[in-house]
Computed example of a mutant assay.
Amino acid sequence: MLRDFGLNEVWFLVLAARWTLALSAVAFVGGGVVGLLLAVARISPWRWLRVAVSGWIQVVQATPMLMLLLLFYFGINMFGVRIDAWTAAAVAFTIGTSAYLADIWRGCIQAVPQGQWEAAKALALNFRLTLALIVIPQAVRMALPPTVGYMVQVVKGTSLAALIGFTELAKAGAQMNTITFEPVRVFGTVSLLYFAMCFPLSMLARRLERKLHVGSLRVQAL
């Protein structure tokens, strides 16, 4: 039975947006932790580790997020391991996010002038202390704007989780459209909610870039 699209339906979409934010937060926090480890490994003194991590990052970046979602949701279940849509989405987005954050942060770390590394070596600091005390504090200044900017992509990308049955904002919008049959109003509201979540992050990224004066800094390529 069809019903009108009103305030109750809008509130339903607002509540669904909480799951979009929750999945985004899990992906960003988990991906951030893993991404930092990958970024450090990517510039480590051990060649075998750099090659292995670089290969892993390239494989993950070359794999569409939808494929990762399907792999962790349907693929693992085929081996008798039961995994729900929330867990599959959290793992897939954590892995995907970590690969991109690792590249962003690796580039920012390598953008720190070589003289800083040489000065740390002259002070007899090892690789770990050089990173912790000298390099990373400077790299954070360059990494903040692109990191915040990438968060926008994470928020928008969570809509793919609807394809494995995870009910976030996009999935809730599709469900609401089937009972109201008012696609313009339903998906217009969904778009406004995505805008409300993403626009502040975009503005924050631009503000950080201007405030920290990182636009002119050159980040070394792979």
Rank of each mutant, 00 (worst) to 15 (best):
Q116P: 10
F74Y: 15
L70H: 11
I104N: 14
E118C: 08
W86G: 06
Y73L: 05
W86D: 10
L68A: 09
L125S: 10
R82F: 13
I136M: 08
I134G: 10
I134W: 04
A102V: 01
M67V: 15
Y100V: 14
Q114N: 12
A122C: 09
T97H: 02
I83P: 12
A119E: 11
P137C: 14
L133H: 13
Q61F: 01
D103A: 07
R47E: 08
N126Y: 11
M78K: 13
A92M: 13
M65I: 12
V53S: 00
T97A: 10
F93M: 14
I76N: 13
Q58T: 09
L70P: 10
P113G: 02
V60L: 12
F127W: 06
A132Q: 05
V135W: 01
I57A: 14
K121P: 01
N77V: 12
R50L: 02
R82W: 11
A52S: 15
G75H: 08
I57C: 11
I134D: 10
M65N: 05
T97G: 07
A52C: 09
C108Y: 01
T63V: 14
W46P: 03
G115N: 06
W86H: 04
Y100F: 15
W117Q: 07
A99Y: 07
V53N: 04
R50A: 03
Q110T: 00
P137N: 09
I134N: 05
I76S: 11
W48G: 05
E118F: 10
M78F: 13
E118Q: 07
V60Q: 08
A89E: 14
L131W: 05
L70C: 14
L68I: 12
P113A: 04
A92Q: 11
A111L: 08
W46K: 15
L133E: 10
L66G: 04
G75A: 13
L66K: 03
Y100Q: 13
V60H: 04
L68C: 14
A62L: 06
I104A: 11
I57Y: 01
A92E: 01
D103C: 00
E118M: 01
V81P: 00
I136D: 05
Q114H: 10
T94H: 08
V53E: 03
S54A: 14
Q61H: 02
I134M: 11
G96F: 10
